[in-house]
Simulated scan of single mutants.
Amino acid sequence: MSVPSKVGFKKPQWLRKKLSNKAQADMEKLLDNAGLHTICQEAKCPNISECFAKKNATFMILGDLCTRRCQYCNVKTGNPNGYVNEKEVEQITISVQKLGLKFVVITSPARDDLKDGGANHFYEVTKSILNNTEDTQVEILIPDFQAKDESLQKVVDSGAVIIGHNVETVPSLYKVRKGATYERSLEVLRRIKELGGEKVKTKSALMVGLGETEEEMVQVFKDLINVGCKFLSIGQYLAPSGDYATVKEYVKPEQFERYKTLAMDLGFEFVHSTPYARSSYMAHEYLSNQKK
Rank of each mutant, 00 (worst) to 15 (best):
L30K: 11
R16I: 05
I94F: 05
V251Q: 13
I142Y: 06
T274D: 01
R177H: 11
V227D: 09
R191W: 04
L19G: 09
S273P: 00
V89E: 01
K230V: 10
F122S: 10
D113E: 02
G8C: 07
L224E: 02
K55A: 04
N132Q: 09
I163V: 14
E216A: 09
S2P: 05
L31M: 15
P275M: 02
C45D: 11
F52A: 01
K203Y: 12
V89D: 00
L262H: 10
L266Y: 12
I225K: 15
S172K: 13
K87N: 08
T77K: 03
Y237T: 07
E254C: 01
L224K: 08
M207D: 00
K17I: 10
V138P: 15
C40T: 06
Q255D: 14
Q13P: 06
L266D: 11
V105T: 08
V104P: 02
E183N: 07
G8L: 06
C73R: 00
A239D: 11
R177P: 08
H165T: 01
A119Q: 11
E285H: 11
T169L: 02
S95E: 07
G209T: 00
S279Q: 03
R69S: 04
E90R: 07
Q71H: 07
V96F: 10
K148F: 04
L238I: 13
F221L: 06
P275F: 09
Q255G: 01
C70W: 06
V161M: 02
G228V: 04
L210N: 06
L186H: 10
S128W: 13
P80Q: 00
F103Y: 14
K102V: 03
V89H: 03
F122D: 04
T107V: 05
E187I: 04
T274R: 03
R191Y: 14
L15C: 12
M60V: 03
Q146E: 09
V104R: 00
A239N: 13
P275C: 05
K55Q: 10
I225T: 14
E168K: 11
S151M: 04
N21R: 03
T58M: 11
K22E: 15
